[in-house]
Nucleic acid binder design. Structure first.
Lengths: 198, 198, 198, 198
DNA sequence: AATGAATGAGGCTTCATTCAT
DNA sequence: GATGAATGAAGCCTCATTCAT
């Protein structure tokens, strides 16, 4: 009687990675729109265009949705910058500039999502120590090479690890503002590490 | 003024301000112990030693409990440091040092609660602009007085407003560590603002 | 606009034991009508005339509802018959008759509920060993007094503990049929324990 | 008749009866291991080594799986014992002994599965009336032949139909304990039916 | 014949809030 | 002012069943 949904209902039987992405995208969108509290699996499913049960085919629990997004963010923040350490053409200050540029690039684009994922939500902070290690390694390298003048590497790393976030908060998501913020923050980083002026 | 009536049944018929404090203390304790998620009005009432309904006599909603705590924290962070601006015996660098010392004092002691109140929980950030204004005023004052060399006051303020939090996170809640962190952060602040060495 | 429920909504603010009973009665009714599978906390609440949440004020979980009913049934089955052991005016055969009468009385009245509670549902069988102990004590007492001739007390107890249930299943819930079944089962019990004829 | 085709991929493209058996065996195993509640069609399929949809090719619903197992059990319990009625070399007491031996053999071996199938799960009891008829016929035959002294055949049949289950519950699944239980129960059955001593 | 991704109804439980006492 | 029993909306998750391939 009532017509069945057409055999080619858009989106049925997507490859697994496509479904996964649909769902994670839905989660990210909803987090950005409303924050964590009103996030429900029902709404995620609706936004992703799948049934509630389908979400659970791809993720073990609501929490797993968040964890997956967090993992992706850290991946983005750590993969590229880590290569800076191996580039012999760069000075230590150049590496630090590169790190700042990369992080600010990410943060300006995803600041609201970052905020929800790493502040509004607990947990998932283990990989932050990886970011801290990367920065620490850079500071120590520059100090040992005589490029930087740092009293306390650990404290300075903690300081910088938070500092760059501030200027990103008010920056609109445009290339121009990103460039401006990056330049400003790079300069401040250099001051903090006592980089010899160039 | 009027002597408080001796409490016959301990805790029953407390004056309003005492009840309010009991309840907020209970909220803070529970937030510190378990974070926001398991916080329920029932548990708050139980910890405060009052009935659930009583909580609603003093606060409009669960959210109002959080807001009240947030307000108190900002009050603590802003009241004393604001006086630094009016102390004529201080240099601008001295004022900045004082601000750092006060904020770190607060943060080291209450970092877990701060984390829950301002990160795990959204909202309540409006008063942060007050802190930002205070810091901005200090930077501008120092710059105009020739003590500081700052390119972009706004950006630098945002930078510093976040930076000092990092070193607090790993600092144990002892006077010794607080002193050490404060000294380190004050030094970094001076570098950032380009304070003339003393 | 819409009229509030009258202040004297029937049943609001019942004493705790009354509420408890309302809820357990609802559970028993629903179990009898439909068995365990379609039993839902929603339906229990509806039948009891309370809100779903109220059920959880009195019972920790759905399972606790069942356990409470089971406990009541065992209480009924064990409390009175235990007194038979202490009545010096009875022969051992008389005690056995009394036990059969009591259990059949219970079973005829509650056979459907018993079935659901003790068969359709697992668990809650620990108190059955109490019933077994009572029966075993009776058999051993009669045997030692020379009234019964029993080869294997344990096996005979297990045998009888199940046997009496069979005739109850087809018996309608009337006093007449109960009397008839009881008489028949008592006679069979006496045969099984080899009671000397009277 | 025709030789089965060698299975190239083990388990794929099995003849229908083999598939059916694989699935029912999986159901029985899972019921024994965990009882009914955690039984899901997914787990059945997994255990049977087929896809979920395949289960539905052989059985209409989850319930049909249970019914099929129940039918098999009744088949086992009724087929062989029915032949006892036609064996002219047996006395009625001998036939009753044979019935007890057969049922206890089955029950000791499968008591857990029986419990799940006939108690934890409702329904499927219609064939029990067949068992009841067989037993009733035996009692009536013995009574008419003057071997048994029974007051109420129906009631006695119901009594015995449940009685033999009790002693099986604690019996370990060994030949020795089965023999012992069978002997004990046979003796009690004879008492109940008032069999003339041999 | 076989697969397994997808569905969606429905279950249990929690908890902010109300209100009669 | 204080209480706490009662409410009921809403959330997370499971699983029998379907159907395009």
């Amino acid at each position: 009687m009532s017509p069945r949904p057409a055999a080619t209902t858009p989106g049925r039987f997507q490859p697994p990675d496509v479904r996964r992405r649909q769902i994670l995208t839905a989660v990210a969108e909803l987090l950005l729109e409303n924050g964590y509290d009103p996030l429900t699996v029902s709404r995620v499913a609706e936004r992703a265009g799948v049934a509630k049960g389908t979400v659970y085919l791809y993720f073990d629990s609501k929490h797993a949705l968040i964890s997956a997004l967090q993992a992706e963010m850290w991946e983005r923040m750590l993969a590229d910058p880590a290569r800076l350490m191996d580039d012999p053409s760069l000075t230590w200050a150049g590496r630090l500039d590169g790190l700042v540029a990369a992080w600010i690039h990410d943060e300006v684009r995803h600041k609201e999502l970052h905020h929800v994922l790493f502040h509004e939500l607990g947990g998932g902070f283990e990989p932050m120590s990886e970011a801290r290690e990367l920065l620490t390694a850079m500071l120590r390298g520059g100090a040992e090479a005589g490029e930087f003048a740092i009293d306390d590497v650990e404290l300075t790393a903690d300081f910088l690890l938070h500092a760059y976030l501030g200027p990103c908060h008010h920056a609109p998501n445009t290339e121009e503002s990103e460039t401006k913020v990056a330049a400003g923050v790079q300069a401040l980083f250099r001051r903090v590490v006592g980089a010899s002026l160039d």
